[in-house]
Lab assay of single mutants.
Amino acid sequence: TFVALYDYESRTETDLSFKKGERLQIVNNTEGDWWLAHSLTTGQTGYIPSNYVAP
């Protein structure tokens, strides 16, 4: 799992909003700078900017 370093507000319907400190499970990280992730807090799935999270 990864932890959010910053808050992120989604800009498209495929993005995932999250708050700093939220735990995220990475589903697919082969898309370059945008990873498909599942929030362990909200249960939602969407794309996140990879530079906003850390292991």
Rank of each mutant, 00 (worst) to 15 (best):
1 T>D: 09
1 T>G: 06
1 T>F: 15
1 T>K: 06
1 T>A: 09
2 F>N: 01
2 F>P: 00
2 F>D: 00
2 F>L: 06
2 F>Y: 15
3 V>L: 08
3 V>T: 09
3 V>E: 07
3 V>A: 04
3 V>F: 09
3 V>W: 07
4 A>M: 06
4 A>L: 05
4 A>N: 01
5 L>I: 09
5 L>C: 09
5 L>S: 03
5 L>Y: 03
5 L>K: 06
5 L>M: 09
5 L>H: 03
6 Y>D: 06
6 Y>N: 06
6 Y>S: 07
7 D>Q: 04
7 D>M: 03
7 D>C: 06
7 D>F: 03
8 Y>F: 10
8 Y>A: 01
8 Y>E: 00
9 E>H: 10
9 E>F: 12
9 E>G: 04
9 E>D: 13
11 R>S: 13
11 R>E: 12
11 R>W: 08
11 R>L: 12
12 T>G: 14
12 T>H: 13
12 T>K: 13
12 T>M: 11
13 E>I: 10
13 E>V: 10
13 E>N: 12
13 E>S: 13
14 T>Q: 12
14 T>V: 11
14 T>W: 15
14 T>L: 12
14 T>N: 13
15 D>P: 02
15 D>Y: 12
16 L>N: 02
16 L>A: 05
16 L>M: 14
17 S>N: 08
17 S>G: 09
19 K>M: 09
19 K>D: 03
19 K>E: 05
19 K>Y: 07
20 K>W: 04
20 K>N: 04
20 K>D: 02
20 K>Q: 10
21 G>F: 05
21 G>M: 03
21 G>E: 03
21 G>A: 03
21 G>W: 05
22 E>H: 08
22 E>R: 00
22 E>F: 02
22 E>M: 04
22 E>V: 02
22 E>K: 01
23 R>G: 05
24 L>D: 01
24 L>K: 00
24 L>I: 07
24 L>T: 00
25 Q>S: 09
25 Q>F: 15
25 Q>C: 15
27 V>Q: 08
27 V>M: 14
27 V>G: 05
28 N>V: 10
28 N>G: 15
29 N>K: 14
29 N>I: 15
30 T>W: 09
30 T>K: 12
30 T>Y: 10
31 E>V: 12
31 E>Y: 13
31 E>A: 14
32 G>P: 15
32 G>I: 11
32 G>S: 14
32 G>N: 11
32 G>L: 11
33 D>R: 12
33 D>V: 11
33 D>E: 13
33 D>P: 11
34 W>G: 04
34 W>N: 06
35 W>V: 08
36 L>I: 08
36 L>V: 07
36 L>Q: 05
37 A>F: 03
38 H>T: 15
38 H>N: 07
38 H>A: 09
38 H>G: 04
38 H>R: 15
39 S>W: 01
39 S>Y: 01
39 S>T: 02
39 S>V: 03
39 S>F: 02
40 L>V: 07
40 L>K: 06
40 L>N: 05
40 L>E: 08
41 T>P: 03
41 T>S: 12
42 T>F: 02
42 T>M: 03
43 G>V: 02
43 G>R: 07
43 G>Y: 06
44 Q>D: 08
44 Q>A: 11
44 Q>I: 08
44 Q>M: 14
44 Q>F: 10
45 T>Y: 11
45 T>E: 07
46 G>K: 01
46 G>M: 01
46 G>V: 01
47 Y>S: 04
49 P>G: 03
49 P>H: 08
50 S>R: 13
50 S>E: 04
50 S>C: 12
51 N>S: 14
51 N>M: 10
51 N>W: 15
51 N>A: 14
52 Y>A: 14
52 Y>F: 12
53 V>I: 09
53 V>P: 02
53 V>Y: 04
54 A>R: 11
54 A>Y: 10
54 A>P: 05
55 P>G: 07
55 P>M: 10
55 P>T: 08
55 P>Y: 10
55 P>E: 10
